[in-house]
């Protein structure tokens, strides 16, 4: 169910990026797509009622090297969170570049409407 909603968010973003005529709205659509994918990654590792995957004294089993089953079964997968952090940084970089290109284009053309920004053809 949640995954379907996440996919819906992705499709909304894609629709917005493809159909909208305003440059800023296209950028917003792309950002929505990015967030949908980030959300999806987080949900992959999430566990209802799970705990943070930080190993404390009580989580180490009696043998000394293994983790307790209780910890393994209840902790949240930390890897997607690391991935999402990286993905957010990357999307921040591209977002900054996109917005700056939008601003420069507005200075040149005086409009954000991509139907009017049409010097290239063919």
């Amino acid at each position: 169910m949640l995954y379907a909603l996440c996919f819906l968010l992705f499709m909304i973003g894609l629709y917005c990026a493809v159909v909208k005529k305003n440059m800023v709205k296209i950028v917003i659509g792309i950002v929505i797509m990015e967030y949908a994918v980030n959300l999806f990654l987080i949900m992959l590792g999430y566990r209802t009622g799970g705990q943070a995957p930080i190993v404390g004294q009580k989580d180490i089993a009696a043998t000394g090297t293994e983790l307790t089953n209780a910890f393994i079964n209840s902790s949240v997968d930390p890897l997607p969170q690391a991935l999402v952090l990286t993905a957010i940084v990357i999307s921040l970089g591209s977002l900054a570049l996109m917005i700056s290109i939008c601003i420069r284009t507005y200075e040149k053309y005086g409009t954000f409407d991509i139907t009017e920004i049409r010097r290239l053809k063919g």
């Binding site: 894609l14 990026a17 440059m23 296209i26 792309i30 797509m33 990015e34 591209s94 570049l97 996109m98 290109i101 939008c102 420069r104 284009t105 040149k108 920004i117 049409r118 010097r119 290239l120």
Partner: peptide, 13 residues
């Protein structure tokens, strides 16, 4: 700028 924006939107998607 126009080409870059077009490239960027498709590239980001």
């Amino acid at each position: 700028l126009e080409a870059s924006f077009k490239y960027m939107v498709l590239g980001e998607i």
